[in-house]
Nucleic acid binder design. Structure first.
Length: 539
DNA sequence: CTTTACATCA
């Protein structure tokens, strides 16, 4: 009756390590943590260490939990700092890695040879050149310039988003110019659109490994040069799942979704097993072409493949696929079965329901989300406002708009304003819609005016319609012209990243390159497109 | 505990 006192430490340790193995989701992790607290292991440093390592590194999407635990550790050692920085760097918000690094320095913990590769990775992911330069300075100050790992990561950073000349110089001066920095440099040139230099580096590489081949194939694929990628794929001495994934992602990226699926078939016929990344690309392709059949097959395959729970990222991709294919029940089903969800999961399903006109359910889910204390973000509110707009719930929509500002302190962006104009416009409250645009704290875009114009037409308000049309035409003359000009300047200088940025800017502003005619469709499909399709697919 | 390759949504 009084047996099983925790006096045998080794057996407990044994128990723990097998326990960590079973931690594959957040719930299990929390359970282990709870039992740790109950058994008094909370003060046991090695247990905390494992807990943080699991949530920061091993289980994807649980980094927030790692932060919570980490914040209660009074004297974290370098391993803990490094694990947190590393986990944050590979998470969706790499900014935290940089913040942690700053905190680390402020607390007078000395960064080491592990710290710098992780924080530099974060700077690269963020394309935060200034910060990366600053970290480079720290590397010099703390004397880690000749550390091979640090040096290679510096090359990686400068090659991908910093100064290519610095990257090349670092590489040229390196004592060890092995395949890793060589591939990093190659990848950088490829990513910057300098495929010819990349190819020359690739050809000159004395030793090539699987990764260097994948670098070159990815380089072509990312620039849409799928013929060259395909050619290399046929020459490559050995392929792995990444090789195939790069090809599939490349086809998806340039909109050749059928080719992507074909590649998948080829991959399988040659006996290569697809992984999560493969499935993510394919789901994106299915969502794009609206291929529900293939999407469902992938879903089934995933259920057969997966040992435990669906990862958050895969669940979100499935929800998105079902939603974009018009199968909202499928989306809901996946959502309900997901054990761990994040804001994106909620956003996808709330937005999907709203888009398909299930306003009531959309708003109900939003309420449920709030009950469960999941913090909505600005994307959540786009979905909710669309739902209100479709249902004609003007007062409720206004309420949520205010809730967003006053309770969640989210500044409305152009999409929220678009929703509000649509909401008021549909309800025929045109004067207020017009005033609303005039009072906006940010510049309205063409989509907003076009939405109002459409509403004026539906409600037969000629006077307001004329004024909206004036603004619209003004805007098109000014902005479209400027954007095209700017884009051409970039293009003439070979700065393709600039061209891409301008294109994104044009998308965000709702300006189209085609010369304007003032005709507006009776429905608001242009607005919906603006609100929900963020992917600027290259044609 | 490091470094190079593939990745959903917005």
């Amino acid at each position: 009756m009084i047996r099983k006192r925790p006096n045998d430490r080794s057996s407990n340790r044994q128990q723990r390590s097998s326990l960590w193995q079973k931690c594959t989701n957040l719930r299990a992790l929390k359970q282990v943590h709870a039992s740790m607290v109950v058994n008094g292991f909370n003060s046991n440093y090695s247990a905390i260490r494992e807990l943080i390592f699991c949530s920061a590194m091993a289980i994807s999407g649980t980094i927030d939990y790692a932060h919570q635990v980490f914040d209660h550790v009074s004297e974290p050692d370098n391993f803990l700092w490094n694990t947190m920085i590393r986990g944050s760097a590979q998470s969706q918000s790499p900014l935290n890695a940089v913040l942690l690094y700053t905190r680390m320095e402020n607390r007078h913990a000395r960064p080491d040879g592990f710290t710098f590769p992780f924080v530099l990775k974060a700077c690269t992911k963020l394309s935060w050149v200034k910060m990366g330069m600053g970290i480079h300075g720290k590397v010099v100050r703390f004397g880690f310039e000749s550390n091979t790992f640090v040096r290679n990561t510096l090359i990686y950073f400068h090659a991908n988003c910093g100064d290519l000349r610095i990257a090349s110089a670092l590489f040229d001066d390196s004592a060890k110019r092995d395949v890793v920095p060589w591939s990093a440099l190659t990848a950088g040139y490829a990513r910057r659109g300098k495929l010819d230099v990349a190819r020359r580096l690739f050809d000159e590489m004395p030793v090539k490994d699987l990764v260097s081949w994948n670098v070159m194939i990815t380089g072509y694929a990312k620039q849409g040069e799928m013929e060259s990628a395909r050619k290399l794929l046929d020459e490559v001495p050995k392929r792995d799942v990444v090789t195939w994934n790069a090809m599939i992602a490349g086809y998806v990226l340039c909109g050749s979704n059928e080719q992507a699926l074909q590649m998948f078939e080829e991959m399988r016929s040659l006996g290569e097993k697809p992984d999560e990344v493969t499935m993510l690309s394919l789901l994106s392709a299915c969502a794009d072409i609206g291929d529900l059949d293939v999407g469902q097959k992938i879903h089934t395959a995933l259920l057969e493949m997966g040992s435990g729970d669906m990862s958050i990222i895969l669940g979100n991709a499935l929800i998105d696929m079902y939603s974009k294919c018009g199968n909202i029940e499928g989306a809901l089903e996946v959502f309900r079965r997901m054990r761990d969800k994040d804001v994106s999961s909620w956003n996808s399903v709330i937005g999907g329901l709203a888009f398909h006109g299930h306003s009531e359910e959309s708003v109900n889910l939003f309420k449920e989300m709030r009950r469960l204390k999941v913090r909505p973000n600005e994307i959540t509110f786009v979905g909710v406002l669309v739902a209100c707009s479709h249902a004609g719930k003007v007062e409720e929509g206004r309420g949520y708009f205010n809730l967003m500002r006053n309770v969640y302190r989210i500044e409305p962006n152009i999409k929220h304003y678009g929703c509000m104009v649509d909401l008021l416009g549909r309800a025929g409250i045109l004067n207020e819609a017009f005033e609303f645009i005039e009072k906006m704290e940010i510049a309205p875009n063409a989509i907003v005016w076009r939405t109002l114009l459409g509403a004026c037409r539906v409600h037969g308000n000629v006077e307001l319609g004329r004024r909206a049309n004036e603004r619209l035409l003004e805007m098109r003359r000014d902005e479209s012209g400027d954007f095209v000009l700017l884009s051409n300047i970039y293009a003439s200088r070979g700065e393709w990243q600039g061209v891409e940025e301008v294109r994104k800017l044009m998308d965000d502003c709702g300006v189209k390159k085609e010369a304007g005619c003032s005709l507006v469709e009776a429905d608001n499909s242009a607005l919906m497109h603006f609100l929900f399709d963020s992917k600027p697919k290259s044609r």
